[in-house]
Simulated assay, not measured.
Amino acid sequence: MWKGVLPAVTTKFNEDGSLDHDEMRRCFQIQMDAGVDGLIACGSLGEGPMLSHDERIAVLKLCKEASGAKPALLTVAEAATRDACTLARKARDAGADGLMVVPSTIYHTDPRETVATLKAIAAAGDLPIMIYSNRLAYRVDVTVDIMAELADDARFVAVKESSDDVRRGTEIINRFGDRFDLLTGVDNHAFEALTAGATGWVAGLCLAFPHETVAIWRLVQAQRYDEALRIYRWFRPLLDLDVSTYLVQNIKLAEAIAFGSNERVRAPRLPLAGERRVQVERTIRTAIACRPALPTLPALP
């Protein structure tokens, strides 16, 4: 159902902290024009937990406006299952094509609780679901055994695999075949995951470098691995910026440099400063200075 490059978009703010609808429209269209395969709103990178439900629905609607016939998903990541179910219903009513669901945030659920939480959200929203498995950031590991307990519910269609163990993808494929769409969620091992069978990439640095991201995906699908690897090796220092406590600030700075966007974040986050900012900006500008020429890409099937 969900394959290819699906960027997890950033949320743009005005100087007064309100949502900057016009800038989001501009940035989302940049992604679509580059050939991405859908958009995901209000994830970790989109500062979802810092937004009200109404704000998240507003961002989702902007994503759907831009994505057209391609999918627009809303991330559900709430401390309480009750609130997650409420947001899932709001997303359905607002026209979401699906949900990307984090099992829990503040309280770290055990396997029984993880299954119950995910099933409750699926029932509430009655939409296709991408399970967001990120044991490092959210302390809940959606293992293959947990996925087996969810496999009989057709609403669970995909997994965003962010365990930071590239071997997990092969374990999922060996256990379930093509039952779940498998999308890698860790930018700096995307090539490894895609060449091992992942069917998509929930991407972060795509927001500043969409053409390179799409090129890697399409070249891998065409088995033009050498060409894809050449781009990926250039991309790796940038992709490392996604695997950081400061991923939001890092990627918003990259968007500002690449596309003239703004890097406003919602408190308690603050824009990068000092030596950290110097290092990140150097990484971005160094990469731009030696940006590779992209080959003619294969057409989509």
Rank of each mutant, 00 (worst) to 15 (best):
L99H: 00
A123R: 13
T81F: 01
M130D: 00
V142P: 02
A137I: 06
A120Y: 01
G95C: 06
L87G: 07
D110H: 09
A116W: 06
L118K: 04
D97R: 09
A80W: 11
L118G: 09
L87E: 10
C85W: 00
D97S: 09
I106R: 10
Y132D: 10
V115H: 06
A122Y: 00
V142W: 05
R112T: 14
M147H: 01
E78S: 09
D126R: 11
V144N: 12
P128R: 06
L99M: 13
L118V: 07
I106G: 11
D97A: 09
N134F: 13
V144S: 15
T105G: 02
M130Y: 05
G95H: 11
I146G: 10
E113G: 15
L87M: 05
D141A: 13
T86R: 14
D110G: 07
A137K: 12
L99F: 01
V76E: 03
G98T: 12
T81V: 13
D145N: 15
T86Y: 01
V144Q: 13
V140L: 00
Y107K: 08
A122E: 06
A96I: 10
V101Q: 06
V144M: 07
A94C: 08
R139F: 14
Y138R: 12
P128V: 08
L87Q: 06
I106A: 12
L118S: 01
L99Y: 05
V102F: 02
I121Q: 08
L127S: 11
H108D: 09
K90C: 08
A148D: 15
D83N: 08
A88N: 04
D141S: 11
A80S: 14
T109V: 15
P103K: 10
P111H: 00
R92E: 12
V102D: 00
Y132A: 05
A120P: 09
V76K: 07
A94G: 05
L87F: 05
A96L: 08
V102K: 02
P103Q: 08
R112V: 15
A79M: 11
L136K: 15
Y138L: 14
R89L: 10
D93L: 13
T117E: 03
I131R: 04
Y132R: 07
T117S: 15
R135H: 04
A94N: 03
